[in-house]
Design a protein around this nucleic acid. Structure first.
Lengths: 162, 162
DNA sequence: CCCAAGTAGTTGAGTGTTCAGCTGTTGAGC
DNA sequence: GCTCAACAGCTGAACACTCAACTACTTGGG
């Protein structure tokens, strides 16, 4: 590990600027959502995924994957959403290990109440700051990165290298 | 609030892709740092800022601003870093409310130990996935966003309109 | 000099996330 | 039809972050 490929000044600046922009953006989005709807962004996204699923119902593990949550995180999250009455758990008839999460009517209502403020915040904080070319570039970069990151092994022997 | 400016399909896709890319990227970076050095990224950045300050010392509130932390968060963080022996608090002679945070020798050592793995992870997960044009575009977009977000009022009457 | 308002920083309760370890279930190979 | 590895999901402890309240100090105005 003596031969680290350090970042050159340009890369360094890109990285810091990206970190700063991301933090400011997500902090603002998160803050709005929490303040106006009492939901963290991660919980909002769980509700969105459920609302888009057939029967507003998904297997827990599918939901975990599609909302980028660990299983554990999703378990805790669904427990809270269930307490709030926005989600209901259902047993899976064909696999008794499994369970479904289903968005309730109250959950739909909560989501519909939260959506306008959230969308408005995303527009204000993100899209209003970028011209069309930048928006297109951001999408292309994001798509590229998602493919890159999904392809990488999750835990690639950092530290004690091959 | 009946007239929400919803996201069109393109914007929607851009937003989701950006969220996904950011989460995957920061999760990977955070995971590496936590695993190899026992530091969350936010703590690492506090150490970096201190290491770059004259005398490796900064006023708490300056440090909070420059590391994008709330005062409260920084207080808690410095308390932990102090426990670990990486940071020391010093009283401010000219303003007795204030205090300084100073990076210790052990803190310098910790940072030097953590840096190679972290930088390597940033390169692998971010820069290796993007070509030079994309890197330039990412920097430009990030700079633009930082300016946009810093200009906005932090808490601009979302929800109940003007 | 004194008081009110503002500033620097801390604290504690509440919440979300992670990690490691646990239960219960399935299914493949023998 | 067993056995055992893999899988689905849950749980509790540890830790980080947020929010609101608090202490201590400074500063400006009467």
């Amino acid at each position: 590990m003596a031969d680290t490929a350090w970042l050159d000044p340009d890369e360094q600046q890109t990285w810091r600027s990206f970190v700063t922009a991301s933090r400011l953006l997500f902090d603002a989005i998160e803050r709005q959502l929490q303040h106006d709807s009492g939901l963290p962004l991660a919980y909002y996204e769980i509700l969105v995924r459920l609302s888009e699923a057939p029967g507003r119902t998904m297997r827990m593990s599918t939901l975990a994957t599609s909302s980028l949550s660990s299983r554990s995180r999703l378990s805790h999250a669904v427990a809270r959403l269930e307490e709030a009455g926005w989600v209901r758990r259902r047993a899976c008839p064909t696999d008794r290990r499994g369970s479904f999460a289903e968005l309730t009517e109250a959950g739909v209502a909560q989501l519909e109440a939260a959506a306008p403020g959230h969308v408005t915040a995303v527009r204000r904080h993100l899209f209003d700051g970028l011209d069309p070319a930048q928006q297109a570039a951001l999408r292309e970069i994001s798509d590229t990165l998602v493919a890159h990151l999904a392809a990488e092994p999750v835990w690639p022997a950092t530290g004690s290298g091959t």
